[in-house]
Simulated assay, not measured.
Amino acid sequence: MTRTGTGTGTGTRARVRPGAAARPAARALVLAAAAALPLLAAAPAQATGYRYWSFWDGSSGSWTYQQQGPATYRPQDGGVDGWRFAVSPDGGSGAARPRAAAGFAAVCGGTAARAGRKRVAVVLDFGTPADAPAGERPPVRRTACAVVPEDASSAEVLAATVPPLRYDGSAILCAIAGYPRSGCGEAVGAGTADAAGAPAKGGGSGDGGGPSVGLAAGGAVVAAVAAGAVVRARRRRTP
């Protein structure tokens, strides 16, 4: 505290050192930021999923997301086509995989090879009740051994073994074995099930229960503002 002027009583006034008033405000900002960050980190992300049949190749013994559509892909004899209906991100390996093993022998082991024909194992996973459109229940998982011409596409494999199929006006496969009865790749909000039946990954990275990137970034801004206030207060205290 420094006195200025002369005399006593009304002639005396106090001058606060530069930065002294800023210190409580800076501390308050730091405490507010520290309290806010756990809440921001716990806020759920709002990932959008799509309800559709994803297409998988199991010829190697494990499921790999198909980079070709069923109308253009032509499996070899001994191939395994896998299909999974689920709420998943928009394509890519983040989609829900079939929950059955990708094994040709288990499906077609008892089917003899034939000249001019090929054998393709088909694995259908209709998903969980949480994946189903309103008013529908998924059929049980099933497999089939298709014996088709050597040049048949995966779409022709499906048509030969698990009809009826339903396509939309853009030739997108909407239903296999009549499921689902309606809808085709509609957006439905956060994903519901992955290959293990746990909450699905949305947007290819989040898990529906993790922190929102936007909220976390907002928390970082709050912390940065608080830190800046501390720095400014310290600079004011410097003579």
Rank of each mutant, 00 (worst) to 15 (best):
R235Y: 01
G228R: 08
T2W: 06
A159L: 06
S154W: 00
K118R: 13
A33R: 01
A226H: 03
R119C: 09
G210M: 00
A113D: 05
L124A: 12
A36Y: 07
G203L: 11
S60G: 09
R137L: 14
M1E: 11
L37D: 00
T111I: 12
F126N: 08
R236V: 03
R114D: 03
A223I: 00
P38T: 03
D125P: 06
W53C: 07
R236W: 10
A200W: 05
P149D: 13
D151N: 14
A134E: 14
S170C: 01
P24V: 08
A160G: 07
G214R: 13
V147F: 02
A155H: 06
R27K: 02
R232T: 03
T238A: 14
V30F: 00
S60F: 01
K118D: 09
G61F: 01
R166N: 09
G109I: 04
D131V: 07
R99F: 02
R23V: 14
T8H: 09
L158N: 07
Q68Y: 11
R141H: 00
G7N: 10
L31K: 04
V222S: 07
A28M: 00
G9I: 05
G197H: 09
G218K: 05
E136F: 03
T111N: 04
R13T: 14
G189M: 10
A86F: 05
G69Q: 12
S62I: 01
P164Y: 07
P24Q: 10
G49K: 07
T6I: 10
A101G: 15
A102H: 02
G127C: 06
A106L: 08
V30G: 03
F126A: 15
Q68G: 06
A41V: 14
P239E: 11
P163L: 02
G110S: 15
S170F: 09
A216L: 14
D90I: 07
G19F: 02
R3K: 11
F126V: 05
G218D: 00
G208A: 10
F104T: 06
G11R: 12
G218W: 10
G135Y: 05
A159D: 11
A233M: 04
F55H: 15
G116E: 04
V162I: 03
G82M: 06
R181I: 00
V188S: 12
A152S: 15
A106D: 15
S170D: 14
E150W: 00
A105C: 02
G206I: 02
V225R: 04
V157A: 08
R235C: 06
A227I: 08
V107R: 08
P139I: 04
G208I: 05
G202A: 13
A105N: 14
P149Q: 06
G58T: 07
A187R: 11
S170V: 02
V87T: 15
W83E: 03
G185F: 06
E156C: 00
R27L: 13
P180R: 11
A42F: 02
S62H: 13
F55K: 02
P163W: 02
R3I: 12
R232W: 05
A217C: 04
P211I: 00
G116W: 01
G202W: 01
R3S: 12
